[in-house]
Amino acid sequence: MTAYVALLRAVNVGGTGKLPMTSLATLCAAAGFSRVQTYIASGNVVFHSDETEEQVRTALEDRLHTHCGKRVGVIVRTASEIAAIVARNPFPDQPGNRVMALFVDAPLPTDPMAGATGAQGEQVRLGQRELFVFYPNGMAKTRLRLPSEKAGTARNMNTVARLAEMAAALR
């Protein structure tokens, strides 16, 4: 079995996309995932599955579509990938709540600032399947918009580290 982390896009953020985490856990169990655990009310879930990453994503997206009546984007990573993201954080000396990992499944841009608007001192670095963004003034005050945000989902490094711990405990 593989330990996975699934990150839902636009769930329980800003009063939109409400999905109780108990419902998310139930949907995951119905998809055949085991040892399901959610983390905070923003669409984070860890679990075991024998399926591939693509099969896991499709099964969860299909169940979410049926449950919510609309498409909900899902990013899936293995426990090893999440741990590697924590390890390669290019801003390890910055507060974890000011560094975000923007998870994407599309190819990353060659220049992480390509097409960006509203930059005010933020720093963006390429990862492998993610962008790392340091917000020196906090994310709430930023005007930075990255094209990758449209298809991805971001989590601060405190959350990523906790998800890595939870997923490692499932192995």
Rank of each mutant, 00 (worst) to 15 (best):
L60I: 10
N97F: 13
F132N: 01
R129A: 08
F132P: 01
R129E: 06
L64D: 09
R71P: 10
L108N: 02
P92D: 06
R63Y: 00
A140I: 06
D93Y: 04
C68L: 15
F134W: 15
A84H: 03
E130Q: 08
H67R: 11
V124H: 00
P92K: 04
K150W: 01
E130G: 05
G127V: 04
T58I: 14
R71Q: 14
F91I: 06
N137P: 06
G138S: 10
Q94H: 12
R125K: 15
V74T: 05
D111Y: 15
G127Q: 08
R88A: 03
E61N: 05
G73A: 11
R125L: 10
T142L: 05
F103R: 03
T142Q: 07
T110H: 10
P136M: 12
V104M: 07
A119C: 13
E81V: 04
S148I: 00
L144Q: 00
M139G: 06
F134P: 04
P109L: 00
K70N: 13
V74Q: 05
E122M: 09
P95M: 09
L64Q: 11
G115S: 01
P90T: 09
D111G: 14
L126W: 05
V104E: 09
V72F: 08
K141I: 04
E81S: 08
L146P: 08
A116H: 01
R129F: 06
E130I: 02
A119P: 09
T58K: 13
Q128Y: 12
E149C: 03
K70F: 15
A83V: 02
V99Q: 11
G115M: 02
M113I: 02
V86G: 08
P107T: 05
Q123Y: 03
P90F: 09
I85H: 01
L146E: 02
P90N: 11
V99I: 12
P90G: 11
A79Y: 04
N89M: 07
G127F: 02
A140K: 12
K150A: 09
D105Q: 13
P147K: 01
H65V: 04
F103G: 03
E61Q: 13
R63W: 00
Q120M: 14
G69M: 00
G118Y: 10
L60Y: 03
R129V: 03
H65R: 15
A101T: 12
Q94M: 14
R98M: 15
G96A: 11
Q128E: 15
R145H: 07
I82P: 10
G69E: 04
A116L: 01
T78Y: 09
A79H: 04
D111Q: 14
G73S: 11
Q120N: 14
P147E: 00
S80L: 10
E61L: 06
M139K: 13
C68Q: 15
L102I: 00
K70D: 12
M100C: 10
G118A: 08
K141W: 06
F103I: 02
V104F: 06
V124K: 03
G69F: 04
V72D: 07
V56T: 13
V74I: 10
T110L: 12
G73H: 07
Y135K: 12
